[in-house]
Amino acid sequence: MLGPVNFAQLLFPDFSLILVGYLVCRFTALNRTVWEQAEVLVYYFLFPVLLFHSITRSPLDLGEASSLIGAGVMLGLSGIAMAYALPFVPWLGRHIDRREHAGAAQVAFRFNSFIALALAERLAGARGQLLIAVLIGFCVPLFNLGAVWPMARHSRTGVVRALVRNPLIIATFAGLAVNLMGLRVPEWLVPTLTRIGGASLAVGLLAAGAGMQFGKMTQSPALTAGVLSIKHLLMPLVALALARLWRLDAAQAAVLLAFSATPTASSAYVLAARMGYNGPYVAGLVTLSTILGLASLPFALGVLG
């Protein structure tokens, strides 16, 4: 079990970048207009390169990773089920607006890929990045479907088309195909890919901080309490149970627990806004989730781990 000093050392580099991103966006000329373009660069180029390189640089044994994949998929399905069930919870459901819930449910189970990858590397080195990349590959389609589905009836966005064109999914499955065929990236190209990967983590964490908004955090308190309790309390507890059920080794269990407690995806508010829902409210939830990650990650990795 890691002590509190180790947790401070583990989390400080990533959360300090989030804080820097927030301060730079709010108090300098590098405002949201700049960071929106940075998010596009990370999402469509830098981050897919990192995922591809993380998967291809070490041989992957799907038999060995199958337990982690199974646990990750079950964790994702559990989070989606709990999020969808919120309007039907006695007493709590009466205070939840169904339309607001459709836009905010995704906060309960989605995750910030930038933070997850950075933490996995600190927890288990190159193997940690490989394991989290595999989890991302199998869970991003599931989570995207779970996020879009409640909003789809109010939008003309094609769910299948959005998944097929997702750059993270394309990069992940391309990396898996290359790895399983026994191919390797040429040595002369590795330094370039490594630098791109490092840039994606730094810029992605800065962009997550730049996207934080505090103005709408007090709206819909019952829904806010519900989705954030699932994300930062119930998901880590489910992850612990699944780690034991699937008999994961220490590195796999640590990655799954970190995966479960990572703050929600910073792009959640973009998806909600683009599909006609309350983007500012979801942005407030993302901000709260990022802050709560300072407590839920030590809880998952220290108390439960």
Rank of each mutant, 00 (worst) to 15 (best):
R247K: 13
A241Y: 10
G284P: 02
P236D: 02
L189W: 08
L297G: 09
A243G: 08
R247N: 14
A208F: 00
A253H: 11
Q219M: 15
W188H: 09
A295T: 04
T287G: 09
G215R: 11
P186G: 10
G284F: 00
N278F: 08
L228Y: 13
S267D: 00
A265V: 04
P298Q: 11
L223S: 02
A207Q: 03
A295M: 12
A272E: 01
A199Q: 00
A273S: 14
L193T: 02
L257Q: 12
A268N: 04
A253I: 13
G197F: 03
L205V: 01
I291V: 14
S296K: 05
A295W: 00
P236I: 06
A272D: 06
A258M: 06
R195G: 15
S229H: 11
Q213W: 05
L206N: 04
L205I: 01
L189H: 00
P280C: 15
G215H: 14
G204T: 01
R184E: 08
E187C: 07
A261D: 11
W188I: 12
A295G: 11
A250H: 11
S267I: 11
A261S: 04
L206Y: 04
K216C: 15
L297S: 11
A207I: 04
P298N: 11
T194A: 06
A243N: 02
W188G: 14
L228A: 08
S296G: 06
A268I: 06
L245M: 07
P191M: 01
T262K: 04
S200R: 04
A268L: 08
L271T: 12
L292F: 00
A253S: 15
K216A: 15
P298K: 02
L288M: 10
V286R: 05
I230D: 08
I291G: 09
P221K: 15
A258D: 01
S296T: 12
R274S: 09
P221A: 12
S229M: 12
L206A: 06
V282E: 00
H232P: 10
A225N: 01
L257P: 05
A241I: 02
R274P: 07
L257S: 00
V185Q: 01
A254K: 07
A261F: 13
S296P: 02
S260V: 02
Y277H: 02
G293V: 03
Y269I: 10
S229W: 12
L234W: 04
S260D: 03
T290Y: 06
L228E: 06
I230K: 06
L248S: 11
M181L: 15
L223G: 06
P186W: 04
W246C: 01
R247C: 14
L228C: 07
P298L: 13
P186H: 05
A243I: 04
G215P: 14
L183G: 09
S267Q: 03
S220V: 09
T194N: 00
S289M: 11
G215F: 11
K231I: 07
K231D: 04
L183P: 14
L237W: 00
